[in-house]
Amino acid sequence: MSGTGTGLLSARGLHKSFGDLSVLAGIDLEARPGQVLSVLGPSGCGKSTLLRVLAGFEAPTSGEVLLDGVRLSGPSADRGMVAQAGGLFPWLTLRDNLAFGPRASRRTGTQVTAVVDELLSATGLDGFADALPKQLSGGMRQRAAIAQVLANRPPVLLLDEPFGALDAQTRLRMHEWLRALLAERPTTVLLVTHDVEEALLLGDRLCLLSNRPACVVDELPVPFGADRGRAVLADAEFVRLKATVLERVLTA
């Protein structure tokens, strides 16, 4: 899994319709290795559908999804996806949740333990290894859900509004935590969100979608360094860009 490619995820001419309802109308995009691509769009524009197609949960009506030039179909362990409500299995302890992916990939017991222990400490959840998901707070659950997916060391991480259900303070903490986490493990990340601030805080590039049926209306680089923290929120350039992008989204 890791090291089998560089993790270049591309979509070419993706169309998706449900019956007469056209949701995606020819999406072309590229998520580059080691970068975070923030996909922004108006509410209900088909962002989640796009991510589900990229993850392989839905087949595109036409077009294709490629990972390092290889055409993909169906879900697999090389694209980890985290949704808003998280994917933790409620009947498993945190430790078993994190071990789920490595075990499915038939890693040995000691390998699994090593990966899980490392992720438990990276998520600051060491003390909760034997807790059930329902015993964790919302922020802890989302950290754990991301760790569960990262345990497989997927080259690509797909995030569908992963912090959408959290309060503003927790969300900000999660942004900083995720940046730090990704700095240590280069991963191609595609983040779908409707939150402009989140898109700018986490993204290296920004991709703007139109209203449904969605197509890409603009792509732009995010001009802040990889080490940006919450201090950047007060940066005049950040504030100006946020206002511009928000205007674009609202009128897209």
Binding site: F57, S76, A77, A83, G87, F89, A104, S105, V149
Partner: peptide, 26 residues
């Protein structure tokens, strides 16, 4: 969602009943 998560984490289809359906339904 549970089934999709398991698939995405690399669980083969033939093991879904044991890894997801059974514990979830228990």
């Amino acid at each position: 969602g549970h089934v999709e998560t398991a698939r995405m984490l690399g669980t083969p289809r033939r093991w879904l009943w044991r890894k997801v359906y059974l514990p979830s339904a228990l």
